[in-house]
């Protein structure tokens, strides 16, 4: 808002990059889950019936992915809350850019979290290669 506001902003300029981290985690989780299932089922075949190793692997990916998304989300949320400013963070200042980036990343983190849970939900219900 004001120039004095800039004291809340860290030295390093913000990177637009960080916006993509939560969706990137979702994408990697999605790919890893599907690749694991496809490869395991192609090798072991549907004869094997139960796909428990796949379920365990995807459970592990999911824990890692959700943790990462939560961490990115938390960092972003703190950026959004720097200083006293309220939404929509649309002033042409370093501080508001910082907050805006944080807010947008927070929303994307929530979306990525839900999407990752949806991906994992498949193996909660489907436990075989059929």
């Amino acid at each position: 808002m004001t120039d004095a506001d800039d004291e809340f902003v860290p030295e390093k300029p913000d990177r637009l990059w960080s916006l993509t981290f939560p969706p990137l985690v979702w994408a990697v989780h999605f790919l890893a889950s599907y690749l694991t299932a496809a490869i395991w089922c192609a090798k072991a075949g549907p004869q094997a019936g139960d796909a428990d190793p796949v379920r365990v692997a995807i459970a592990a990916y999911t824990v890692v992915a959700l943790t990462l998304i939560a961490v990115f989300g938390w960092i972003a949320f703190r950026k959004h809350r720097t200083g006293e400013a309220t939404l929509p963070h649309d002033f042409d200042s370093r501080a508001d850019q910082h907050r805006f980036l944080g807010f947008a990343t927070t929303l994307l983190a929530i979306l990525s979290f839900v999407a990752t849970v949806f991906t994992a939900l498949v193996v909660v219900f489907v436990g075989s290669c059929h």
Binding site: P46, V117, L121, V124, F125, V126, S128, H130
Partner: peptide, 19 residues
């Protein structure tokens, strides 16, 4: 709503897909 629908649909899959 989507979570409920997804779960409901997925819960049907094992029986439909079982040989």
């Amino acid at each position: 709503v989507l979570t409920c629908l997804l779960s409901y649909g997925l819960s049907m899959m094992p029986e439909l897909q079982r040989p």
